[in-house]
Design a protein around this nucleic acid. Structure first.
Lengths: 361, 361
DNA sequence: TTGTAGGCGTTATCAC
DNA sequence: GTGATAACGCCTACAA
């Protein structure tokens, strides 16, 4: 954090400024400025002369001076917990698309999933006089630093004190998962979740839908990692006295990947013996074997909405929080059970058979 | 691209400035400035008074004014082809880490794999007076726009006119892949590549190593997508008269995923019948089934190096291009062949058996 | 339509 | 150690 380091040589030759252009064009700096801003209010001839001269001098207005006098930077801060998490990548992409299409640029920062770092990063964004900010899954929630009416938009579940928000209806995602498993005729269900509000919401929907069908379910709490998914399936299959699950809903695709792997290793077929539903529909979902049925979180649309919301706020037009509905993306990991070999295998007797789920195209 | 939109209300009340602090503290603005910069050269007592006042007025120096007078912005532009490509995510993360640790911020832009968009994005970065820029796999190569000695660092294979560069030794990656397959006793090899310089380099290394062992190989050209990997394996297995391959090197993990899937569907076991090596070692590699052996591209180190290089340039200390060596990450998709059932199955007779590669922990 | 002049918030160069 | 003061590059009333 040794800012600057005295490293930057600020003796770099500055290019031609507005004054030089004005002088050579025989006009005032004001006129040059107008040419680049209110192009209308200036004589066509003068304007062309200025433009040509500017081009030949390779001049364009410095954003630094402009920022200073206007008090804004055309910069939007984007604060992300983890830059290498694929779902965030999709959001970042959508945010950048929308903002750059509106002449704004994205100042990127990462919180490394850490509240202290997040605060520091937020301050850093403010230092650069961002006109607004988007923060994904904030740790601080309403505690984000702010100045002179700074506009923060959050992509996160509801928090009482955060007015500007884009969120996913996690509960209805849980419902979709339950319905899909029920549709496939599964009755022995299990939920693989994790700590935190999102998983809780997903589970609530899942449970509600099952209750409506008069069913209960077993649960295992992991941490969104593949390893915890491995362990989850391991544990669920091992429980003596209980019937082995024939349908598993994992609150994240990575955990679902772990579940699938354990099932393979146990010799259970998917979906013949056990159906699996993931959550997020990240890129990996369709690469798993079998291709994973997942509840899609429309990260692109959410990023887009967040960007549009922040632009709205800048324009002084607040919008109500926007809630996105997840959708079911049906792939190979769900389907009808195999009637001839019900999922009652002992976990001690792995079968080498693995079902082929696709014929060649 | 309707810049600004007249949307931003620039009537926002500006916070207390350096003058107000100076006035209330009974000192000059110069002293206040010194307090925040050369903290040493100011009387301890005065300094404390200023600090307290600044705190109570919630004052901190405006980067805008500072930027203007110093002619730099503490911003580094980062231009990426595709923000949702996982490997780039790792690089972006590394770049942000290094730069933020040095008090610089990251201005992010995407080229959408398009040369025109890239140029526009690069200009946009220049508009914001970035002190330097990093561009990953540039389309334009040396054609990047530049002003007043702007420093661009490229993460890309060698291009004659790009002086500041971080790159991967793709050829040696190809060698590693070949060696691993040879080590596993494979003799019927195939290369699945794609258009472009990177694939060509990887293939060159692969071919060289095989030639040294007196072997030739077959090849298929895809496009880095999973679909093209599917088709590659399909094609390679179908070639009549030729022995079926027992070792496949795919120039990208996604293509390797496609290869694996086709092998599954054909009833071929991995690695018993066919060994597979991918490239990049992206996150998905270890999620595939079986877990994919891959040539690791150290995206984190490369991002870090690019960031450090741009900082060096800013400090007036150029560095020679840095070349990174890929490494072999050995997982389950390579190993000894199964002696009892050599890989000579007809592609028309898929077997339902799928080898279990892991015992439970 | 154009020019004049003041100021945005800061740092840097002098003196003292 | 501190204080005037002059930039930095630009925008924008206001006046012409």
């Amino acid at each position: 954090m040794n800012e600057g380091e005295g490293a930057v040589p600020h003796n770099a030759p500055r290019g031609a400024g507005i004054r030089e252009v004005a002088r050579q064009a025989g006009v005032s700096t004001a006129t040059v400025s107008r040419v680049f801003n209110n192009a209308d209010s200036v004589n066509l001839e003068t304007r062309q002369r200025v433009m040509e001269l500017a081009a030949s001098l390779n001049y364009s207005p410095s954003p630094l001076g402009r920022n200073l006098v206007q008090g804004r930077s055309s910069l939007i801060g984007l604060l992300v917990p983890n830059l290498s998490f694929p779902l965030y990548g999709e959001m970042i992409r959508a945010v950048e698309d929308v903002l750059s299409a509106h002449g704004m640029s994205v100042l990127l920062a990462s919180s490394h999933d850490d509240a202290v770092t997040e605060t520091r990063a937020a301050h850093n964004l403010l230092r650069h006089a961002v006109d607004g900010g988007i923060v994904i899954n904030s740790q601080a929630g309403s505690g984000l630093p702010t100045v002179r009416g700074m506009n923060w938009v959050q992509v996160a579940p509801e928090l009482p004190t955060v007015p500007h928000r884009v969120e996913l209806d996690n509960e209805s995602g849980g419902r979709l998962a339950a319905r899909e498993l029920l549709r496939c005729g599964r009755r022995q269900l299990a939920y693989v979740g994790a700590a935190g509000r999102e998983s809780a919401d997903r589970e609530r929907g899942f449970a509600a839908e099952l209750a409506q069908a008069g069913l209960s379910y077993r649960r295992f709490m992991g941490d969104y990692s593949e390893a915890s998914g491995l362990m989850a399936a391991e544990t669920l299959l091992k429980q003596d006295g209980e019937p082995s699950p024939d349908g598993i809903f994992a609150a994240g695709d990575l955990m679902a990947a772990g579940v699938l792997r354990t099932l393979h290793l146990r010799g259970l077929r998917v979906p013949a013996d056990v159906a699996v539903v993931g959550f997020d529909d990240a890129v990996i979902a369709s690469l798993l074997y079998p291709r994973l049925t997942s509840i899609r979180q429309p990260a692109d649309l959410m990023g887009q909405a967040a960007a549009e919301l922040v632009l709205s706020l800048l324009a002084g037009r607040p919008r109500p929080p926007q809630i996105f509905a997840p959708t079911l993306v049906c792939r190979e990991s769900t389907g009808p059970p195999d009637q001839h070999s019900p999922a009652l295998l002992s976990s001690a007797a792995p079968s080498p058979a693995f079902s082929l789920l696709e014929e060649e195209p």
